[in-house]
Every structure is written in C-alpha cells, then in structure tokens.
C-alpha cells in the first residue's frame, strides 16, 4: 500500500469516527425508527401520515419555517454590516468588538432568554411604552408573539452569522476595496458592488447555519412564545420525552432534517449560480 495515500486518511480517521458515531448512526437509527410504530411490529408510514393529517403539526411546521426565514434574514442583515465594520477596525478595536459579539455565546440560552422574558413582559421597562402590552392578545407585551421569539432568536443567531461572514470578509483583499474607492465607488456602493458579492460564500454559510439553528431550536420559542406558539422542535421534544412516542418524534426530526437539507441545497445552488 502506498504510504503517501494512506496517511491523509489516517488524519481524517478521528473525525470520520466521530461523524459516524455522533451523526450517521443516530440519524440512521432515527430514520429507521421513523418508519416503525410503538404499538405494532413492521414498517409503517403511519407516523408521516399522522403528521400530515395533524393541523397542529402543519401549522407549527409553517410557523417554524416562517420564523426561521425571518430570523435568518434579520440575522444576516445585522451581521453583514457589523462584520464589515469589524473587518475595517484596528486590530485592537476588532478584538473588543469580537469579544462583545461572542460574549453572549458564553452564557446559557436559557439565562439569556429569561432576560428577554423580563424585558419583553409586563414588568419590564418596555411595558411603560403605551400600547406595548397590547402587542400580544394576552397583554403580555412581546411574550407569546412571534415577533418576540424572532427578536430573542436573532440575538442568539447573530454571533454565528457574524463569525461566518467575518471569516470571509477578512479574506477579501483590502486593495480591492481601495481600488473600488479610487474608481469612484462611495463607501456604500463599494460595500454593495464589491464587498457584498465577494462575501457571498460567507453570507450563504452563515445563513445556512442560522436557518438550521433556528429551525431546530425550541428552548427560546418555548420560553418566549410559550405553549401556544409551538414549533416543530418543541413537538419533537414533547413526543420523545412526555409521550414516549420515539417513532413519531423521529419522523418529525427526519422531516425537519429534510427541510434543512433542501434549504442548504437551494441556497448553495443560488449562490453558485450568482458567483458562477
């Protein structure tokens, strides 16, 4: 056997092993489980037909996808200018900004979300704004509203978006931007015509990451949106832990995975056609 050909494989072996143990096997067993039923032996499509016959699950799916799209777009809209500004700062200021961006990731999502619950609720500072409480029909301000969930989720997602966009923007040759400025592009037109197209790979990967994180989240939607705005992640959790119906939970998880994969394929296709 040729040594130079086997050595690279040895290097990826740990990653491959981890991938198989932590991803391939669980996903495969979930896939198999999704075609079984707790009550009866053999393969069945019952879990999927149950899902598509349940208006609650369909509504929750639509809500999950809708919120994931909104949150992804909002996160990218915030992250791209932020990452661009960060890339233009001095090294020291960039470190400060970097820490400020990453710091929220160091605290638990639950803690952060409780912060939002207080901020968005009837005893928070925003409640003093006339009409704020009426944003939800239960007079809970932003609690129990999709807007509230979206705001809290965007706060969770923006650091991920910033990090993936910043990685790409930092790699853009600064002389391209200087050249564009000397060629008559203003700050904004340079951003639009040069930075944005070149940052597209980072934006696509950031958006994909945000979308996948958003679609699978259930802690923040649960705490802010509550039981009345269920998302698919919450149903999966409920069916797996409370109802003990693992096959149905697995079926929902597979549908969610499919939604993510389709989105990734679509965005990658879109991006590669744009970059050609």
């Amino acid at each position: 056997m040729n040594k130079s050909r086997t050595e690279p494989w040895l290097l990826v072996l740990p990653v491959m092993a981890l991938l198989v143990i932590a991803f391939v096997i669980p996903v495969a067993s979930s896939l198999i489980a999704s075609f079984t039923s707790t009550g009866s032996p053999g393969f069945t499509l019952a879990n999927f037909s149950d899902f598509f016959e349940s208006s609650v699950h369909l509504t929750a799916s639509a809500r999950t996808l809708r919120m994931a799209f909104i949150q992804t777009i909002a996160s990218i809209l915030i992250a791209v200018p932020l990452a661009y500004i960060m890339s233009r700062l001095s090294a020291r200021a960039r470190v400060v900004m970097m820490i400020a961006t990453i710091l929220p990731l160091m605290t638990s999502v639950v803690i952060r979300t409780f912060g939002w619950v207080i901020l968005m609720g009837p005893s928070g500072p925003l409640a003093r704004i006339p009409g704020f409480l009426e944003l939800s029909n239960s007079h809970q301000g932003l609690l129990g509203t999709e807007l509230g969930v979206n705001i809290a989720m965007v706060q969770v997602l923006v650091p991920f978006a910033v990090l993936s966009v910043l990685g790409v923007i930092n790699g853009i040759d600064v002389r391209l931007q200087e050249a564009s400025r000397t060629m008559g592009a203003s700050f904004l037109r340079n951003f639009w015509h040069v930075v944005l197209p070149l940052a597209l790979p980072g934006i696509v990967s950031g958006a994909t990451l945000c979308f996948a994180l958003s679609i699978s989240s259930f802690i923040t939607p649960n705490l802010i949106g509550g039981a009345q705005l269920p998302v698919i992640g919450a149903f999966i959790y409920q069916d797996a832990t409370v109802n003990g119906d693992l096959p149905f939970a697995a079926a929902q998880a597979m549908l969610m995975l499919m939604a993510v994969l389709i989105t990734i394929a679509a965005t990658n296709r879109l991006a590669s056609s744009r970059m050609k």
């Binding site: 040759d173 002389r175 391209l176 000397t182 340079n190």
Partner: peptide
C-alpha cells in the same frame, strides 16, 4: 474622499 477625486490608481497586485 477617494471616490470624489476623479483620478485613477493602478495597484501592484492589479486589484
């Protein structure tokens, strides 16, 4: 600002 000077610059790396 550079874009208002109406001059052109050619870079060593061509850019």
């Amino acid at each position: 600002a550079p874009e208002k000077r109406r001059l052109s610059m050619m870079f060593q790396s061509y850019a």
